[in-house]
Computed example of a mutant assay.
Amino acid sequence: MTRRSRGREVALQVLYQVEQNSGLPAVEIRQFINRRLLGEARLVEFTQALIGGVREHQPRIDAMIEEVAENWRLDRMAAIDRNILRLGAYEVLYGPDEVPAKVAINEALELAKRYSTAQSSRFVNGILDRVLQLHEESKAKADAPAEPEVGGQTAPKAAGDATPQAPPAETAPEVVAEAEPAS
């Protein structure tokens, strides 16, 4: 198991513990993390960043999971699966750029295989794939350049666009519409 995988595993354990016991003191959480990761500073920092990130973005993450989880409410999912999904979705949506989304999903699958049921890894994979797809679609829409206006008209679209463009008003032939007979 890689060091970061171990950090994700401890982050999952903490997220699960906190969900089951919201009154858990922060000092106990820090001690747990330090004990489990043998006080390795960079790994402890990585793990705490994962936990903090999931907790900071949890309302948005939960909403997105519910949006893509057809016929499943978040509160009806197994607690361990719910937290694996939160951790995986956090890394896909907000995680550091050096971790590709497919790696984050694979790490979540490994956690599901280790800590949940035989069917959980397929469930987690399906949900996180949809989260990634939704995220990429919304990113593509946000990154798409707006069509600038040129002289009061929309500028022509990029080459290869199947939408025909009307010629500028100065060169367009005059079209006279014939009136339809009244019935």
Rank of each mutant, 00 (worst) to 15 (best):
L111C: 04
A69V: 09
S22F: 14
Q165F: 11
N71Q: 08
T2N: 07
V124L: 05
L109C: 03
D143C: 05
F46A: 02
I29G: 00
A69P: 01
D161Y: 08
D129V: 14
V14H: 07
Q165R: 00
L50Q: 05
Q133W: 12
G95W: 06
I80L: 08
V18R: 09
V103Y: 15
Q58R: 15
S121F: 09
N83S: 07
L85K: 08
Q48I: 01
A26H: 13
E174A: 04
R3G: 14
V131T: 14
I105W: 03
I33F: 10
L134V: 07
V27G: 10
T47G: 09
V175S: 04
A49E: 10
L87V: 09
L87P: 03
I105N: 07
V92I: 13
M77C: 12
D81P: 02
G88C: 03
E56R: 10
P156C: 09
P168L: 06
A101F: 00
D81S: 01
E67G: 00
K102Q: 15
Q48P: 05
A11V: 10
M77S: 07
Q133E: 13
S138V: 08
D81Y: 00
D129Y: 13
T2R: 04
N71Y: 06
I33L: 11
L24H: 00
A79N: 09
Q153Y: 14
M77F: 12
K157M: 15
Q20F: 09
G39M: 09
P168Y: 10
Y90P: 07
I51W: 00
L37Q: 05
I84Q: 07
R4K: 10
M77T: 09
Q119W: 12
E91G: 13
Q58Y: 10
P100L: 07
S121T: 10
R3D: 15
K157P: 11
A158I: 06
E136A: 02
F32C: 12
